[in-house]
C-alpha cells in the first residue's frame, strides 16, 4: 500500500469517527431520557405511586396554587388559591382553562415547586399535566389535580407552592 492510499484510508476512518460522534450527540437525547427515567428524576409530568397512606394529623402544610401561561391564548386559573392539608391526606384541587382563540389549541402544562426539593414529596395521582390538552375554540374546561403530600416531607417545610405553566405545543394546531 503506498502512502497516498494509506493516507486516504486513514482519512476515511477518521471521517467516520467524526460522523459517528455527530450521531452520538443525537443519541444522547434518548439516552438522557432513559437515564432520567431510571434514576427517577425529571418525572414532573408522570403519575406518582404512593405506598404509605398513613395520615400525619400532627402537622399541617399549606399548599399554594399558582398558574401561568407561556405565549398561549388561554385563561388559566386554580379555583382556590391555597389550601391546608395533612401529610398523607388525599386532596383534590381544580383548575379552569378557557381557550380565548378562535381556533383549537393544544397545550402542555409543566409543574414547578417552591421550595424546589419539595417536588419529590408532592405526589400527583391525577393531573391534567399527564397528557396534552386540546381545547376547541372558546371551550372552557375544569381539570382536577389529586395529590398526596408525602409524610416524609422535612418538618421545617410548612408551605409548598405548586406552579403550573401551560406551553403551546407548536405545530399541533389543536390536532391531538
Amino acid at each position: 500500500m503506498n502512502l497516498e492510499q494509506a493516507n486516504r484510508r486513514l482519512c476515511m476512518r477518521l471521517a467516520l469517527i467524526a460522523l459517528g460522534m455527530f450521531g452520538f450527540g443525537f443519541a444522547l437525547v434518548p439516552f438522557y431520557g432513559q437515564i432520567c427515567a431510571a434514576l427517577g428524576v425529571n418525572s414532573l409530568t408522570q403519575r406518582d405511586s404512593v405506598s404509605n397512606t398513613q395520615i400525619d394529623a400532627s402537622r399541617t402544610v399549606t399548599i399554594e396554587l399558582d398558574s401561568n401561561t407561556h405565549d398561549l391564548p388561554w385563561r388559566f386559573r386554580p379555583l382556590v388559591n391555597h389550601l391546608q392539608v395533612h401529610p398523607g391526606e388525599l386532596a383534590t384541587v381544580e383548575y379552569e382553562i378557557v381557550n380565548q382563540r378562535a381556533a383549537p389549541v393544544t397545550g402542555q402544562a409543566v409543574p414547578s415547586y417552591g421550595p424546589q426539593f419539595a417536588g419529590e414529596y408532592f405526589k400527583k395521582l391525577e393531573c391534567f399535566c399527564f397528557t396534552q390538552q386540546t381545547l376547541a375554540p372558546g371551550e372552557t374546561r375544569r381539570m382536577p389535580v389529586t395529590f398526596v403530600v408525602d409524610p416524609k416531607l422535612p418538618r421545617d417545610v410548612n408551605t409548598i407552592t405548586v406552579s403550573y405553566t401551560f406551553f403551546e405545543v407548536a405545530g399541533r394546531g389543536g390536532k391531538s
Partner: peptide
Amino acid sequence: LAVMPVLAGAVTMTLTDRHFGTTFFNAA
C-alpha cells in the same frame, strides 16, 4: 474529532427547535 461533531449536533438541535418544530429543548 470526538467533540466538535457533538457541538455541531447541539447547535443543529437548537436550529431545528427554532425553525422546524422539533422540541429537543422545549419542555412543552
